[in-house]
Design a binder for these strands. Structure first.
Lengths: 231, 231
DNA sequence: TAGATTGTTAATCGATTAACAATC
DNA sequence: TAGATTGTTAATCGATTAACAATC
């Protein structure tokens, strides 16, 4: 690690999982060595950016050679702390929550240790083997089992209240699927998955691009012209 | 609209749904008027940024007064094209896909018109009233019904292939839940929801903050010290 | 050694913030 | 009118890209 003092910027951190995915893929394909420019071409980034990003954490390459795929993947695993598993609880086990359970069972870096819902059910989750407890049991459970991460799959109306509560019980990170922005002390981390925002952004991009194209093609052609993008 | 020519930057576009959420909330609370600085305080942004962002699309405020909440919300609705509904299909109706159906039934800007899965089921979706077709029917369906957006809830291994295919059938935007980066012609829009990346980022933030705190507090205190953030 | 490619510094670009004249 | 707050230009900040000396 190069500069253990200086904090790494969020844009860089957000690219790490993507690097990790691409490297894992290369590894799977038996590729042993890769240069920053080769990786850049595959990831549609610049070689400069890749070298800059990696050098926030250390000099993992070798001049004249490039990077060992396997070694670099290992370094990123370490940077992302994938050797540990953060104990996590899920609050809100509705359709979305249950869908996430499948994804989480194989996920690195995290381990589900408790499920909670307003309406507790004795139903044992097929993936985790956990049963769904009532939110009333949150405090006792947290104090005893010390989960660090909470996955919030509850409606926006309750999210802020529950989050505050959980922060008080020692939760330090929220994976927030509710459609609100949680207001929490700054030492608490939040990663939002704002599905509604996301689809609105896509809609904007699609509609907007359409408009642009109509402008540039002279627009006044009257009828719905198909476009079949090549490649 | 101020500068219909100049394209708006993505950071600005990505903030629009959030503005829309906050304004809808203010409206719901009966607040009629708001200044950029008041809104900035609520959203934890700078007043400058808000004024800059809005002015990409037009001068919606009034000097000495601020912004009409209701009117501004309406403008953003229009900017996001929420008066239209893009016809959309879902490909992959597993746990995650089904969970999204609930979210989409009330969503603005989009309307589901078809569901597809490798294993078609005659099961009619409770929200949409649509039944699940086989992927084999995609081409015919698209050519006939001209969906514009595809929601991809399929495993990464198939996503690239299906996406190319769909692009050929006229799909212009992808809401991509598969854990791969789709390579598509640049005129096609993609909005990724990379859940695995997202949880890794959260894990990094939590672990990293923990490390920082241990450094600053002198670290060598031995035992798991509780932290209960106030406020 | 010569060739390739990194690590790193410097230059550029773009986004955010500050400042203030315009104006309601 | 005086006060408030915008729209907009200028300054700052940060992130990306380019360049190149170091080095494998």
């Amino acid at each position: 690690m190069k500069n253990p003092e200086q904090t790494v910027s969020m844009p860089v951190v957000r690219r790490l999982p993507r690097y990790y995915r691409f490297l894992s893929d290369l590894k799977k394909n038996g590729i042993v060595r890769i240069s920053s420019s080769e990786l850049a071409a595959r990831m549609r980034l610049t070689a400069s950016q890749i070298r800059q990003d990696l050098n926030c954490f250390g000099g993992f390459g070798q001049q004249g050679y490039g990077y060992h795929v396997d070694q670099l993947a290992g370094e990123i695993e370490r940077i992302l702390y994938l050797d540990r598993k953060l104990p996590a609880i899920m609050v809100g086990v509705g359709n979305l929550g249950r869908a996430l359970l499948g994804h989480l069972s194989g996920a690195k870096g995290i381990k589900l240790i408790g499920l909670f819902d307003k309406a507790p059910r004795p139903v044992t989750d097929i993936h985790t083997g956990l049963e769904v407890m009532g939110v009333g049991q949150l405090e006792d459970f947290c104090l005893e089992n010390k989960p660090v991460v909470a996955i919030l799959c509850i409606p926006g109306e309750h999210a802020q209240y529950i989050a505050r509560q959980l922060a008080g019980y020692g939760i330090r990170g929220f994976w927030n699927f509710s459609n609100v922005d949680l207001q929490l002390p700054k030492e608490i981390s939040v990663e939002n998955v704002h599905l509604t925002d996301s689809i609105l952004i896509l809609g904007y991009k699609v509609n907007n691009r359409q408009e642009e194209m109509e402008e540039s093609t002279g627009s006044a052609d009257g009828e719905g012209h198909e476009q079949r993008p090549g490649e």
